[in-house]
Design a protein around this nucleic acid. Structure first.
Length: 276
DNA sequence: AAGGTCTCCTGAGGGC
DNA sequence: TGCCCTCAGGAGACCT
């Protein structure tokens, strides 16, 4: 499940391979691979030169030698692979972008990912313009972010996943962040102290930085194992996906609850439920 | 208006 | 073995 560290790992890998390359041709193999909001068919980008690869939160985009950008969101299972043109098409290959000596392929099993041609405003594509800056952004403002959390009339876990409050955090890092912060996922934002909210944001930043550092080392030909089978990253998780296993801090059994239409993993002792 | 829920999708895994 | 059910979740549409 690509969250900020995984998307940043992909961005770094893409930047290494595709900057300066000219898009010769684009083939689209699945209708859902092009977002409905795309201004034009992806094939219209033939002839464009890739000038850079940018990111905000989980949104990724290719800057081109024209005003439009090619935006990508990996969704649940999207991957970019650098392949030789002669290489057999991968299962679930949705788009192939001919870059001359190499090919950039978009592979996506669950088809929640998409590509789109979009305009930008202040350098940010339309689809990402409403989301908050992520904590890796040089202009990320911690105080502003704390204020956005405090203004939310909802639980901290929901706010962490709200890309308009803080971007880049997904279910895995949200759970890890709350465990590190010793905060129960259902704690109401408005009942938290600003200093605690600040701590949560800093822990989110920290856990994602640590994951990025590990993601960088396991990066192999732009391949990110979305099923977590490579293990390097999974090993450092304290609570996510560890229901029934012991908390690394206190050895209590990790619990899982259904919440906000997804799973939340937490330690019942380190992260006690707040009083009603 | 803002918060909460539903929906899109595929494959894995469990139960019987 | 095969069939049906549940689960995984990012983000936007939709409802209240």
């Amino acid at each position: 499940m690509p969250e900020l560290p995984e998307v940043e790992t992909v961005r770094l890998g893409l930047a290494k391979h595709v900057i300066g390359k000219k898009i010769r041709k684009i083939q689209v193999h699945h209708s859902r691979a092009t977002a409905p909001k795309s201004l034009a068919p992806l094939t219209s980008l033939a002839g464009a030169k890739i000038k850079g690869v940018s990111r905000r939160g989980k949104f990724l985009w290719f800057d081109l030698d024209r005003p439009e950008v090619l935006v990508a969101h990996l969704g649940m299972s999207g991957q970019f692979l650098i392949s030789k043109a002669s290489e057999m098409p991968q299962r679930h290959m949705r788009v192939r972008i001919d870059l001359g000596r190499m090919e950039l392929r978009f592979i996506d099993q669950r088809t929640f990912g998409w590509l789109a041609v979009e305009n930008t405003a202040e350098g940010v594509p339309t689809s990402a313009s409403h989301i908050a800056r992520d904590p890796f952004d040089s202009e990320f403002d911690l105080d502003v972010c704390v204020a956005r959390f405090m203004a939310k009339r909802t639980e901290i876990k929901r706010a962490l996943l709200d890309q308009e409050v803080i971007s880049g955090v997904g279910n895995i890092y949200a759970d890890e962040t709350l465990w590190r912060s010793k905060v129960h996922p259902e704690t109401r934002c408005e009942k938290m102290k600003p200093a605690k909210v600040r701590e949560v944001i800093l822990n989110a930043t920290k856990v994602m930085r640590e994951a990025l550092a590990q993601g960088g080392t396991s990066f192999d030909e732009l391949y990110i194992n979305v099923n977590g089978e490579s293990g390097y990253f999974e090993r450092s998780l304290a609570v996510y996906g560890r229901e029934g296993e012991s908390c690394p801090k206190c050895h209590s059994a990790i619990r899982r609850i259904r919440f906000a239409n997804r799973s939340s993993h937490f330690c019942p002792k380190c992260q006690p439920r707040p009083r009603a």
